[in-house]
């Protein structure tokens, strides 16, 4: 079920909300990619970051230096970190999302893989995305629930990275994420204390992600 960097640059589009850690997740992803010896890129956004605003963030990872920095149009992977995107999609009944929410279905191809933070089953999510009968792989993980249970706060990033480790094992792995957390949390003992819980959340993300 994994995809490989042998096919060239992998392009990712993240869907989240301003101020809820999506930029941090994309940044962690790029940082982990660089630590694994690849070229990583994350472009936060082209709009104003305001708390709560639905946003799209772009990432690229490649074995070769990354030349371009334009928005990702045809993502290989769509990561939806904000669970309400699926709720809005469900409410739209296959129609248009409210204009202020970037549509996760935009520019996708048959190969686009979805990784979604939602309590829904992958089958249900696939149906809501309108991808029934399509070859797309749709994976879901309840990263918010995992984060609340393991870390005690709504920070689903590490659980989502766990799910990504299953889809993109070449780039994301436990050991490197641990290294990354140790570096970024290192200065504060309060944050450092959260590393084991974050790793547990990542492990659960890896184990609990289901795909259809």
């Amino acid at each position: 079920m994994a995809i490989s960097l042998d096919q060239g640059t992998i392009e990712i589009r993240w869907h989240g909300r301003g101020g809820q850690g999506t930029v941090t997740a994309a940044k962690m992803f790029a940082s982990v990619a660089v630590k694994r010896g690849y070229h990583g890129q994350s472009i936060p956004m082209f709009g104003l970051e305001r708390s709560g605003t639905p946003v799209a963030v772009y990432s690229r990872v490649s074995k070769e230096p990354i030349m371009r920095n334009d928005p990702v149009r045809h993502p290989h992977i769509v990561v939806i970190t904000d669970p309400s995107v699926m709720v809005y999609l469900a409410a739209s009944r296959g129609g248009k999302l409210p204009e202020s929410i970037p549509d996760p279905r935009e520019g996708i191809t048959d190969e686009t893989i979805f990784i979604i933070n939602t309590p829904m089953s992958p089958e249900e999510a696939k149906k809501i995305l309108g991808l029934e009968g399509k070859p797309n792989k749709v994976c879901t993980v309840d990263a918010t629930k995992i984060a609340l249970e393991e870390i005690g706060r709504n920070v689903p990033n590490t659980a989502i990275l766990g799910a990504m480790a299953k889809i993109l094992p070449e780039v994301v792995d436990m050991e490197t994420v641990k290294e990354e957390l140790e570096e970024s949390f290192g200065a504060s003992s309060k944050l450092r204390a959260l590393i084991p819980a974050n790793l547990k959340a990542m492990e659960r993300g890896y184990n609990e992600v289901k795909c259809a």
Binding site: R17, R50, G52, T53, P54, S84, P98, S100
Partner: peptide, 9 residues
């Protein structure tokens, strides 16, 4: 005219 209701969690 600006829809800010979608920012609401």
């Amino acid at each position: 005219e600006v829809e800010t209701g979608t920012w609401r969690i």
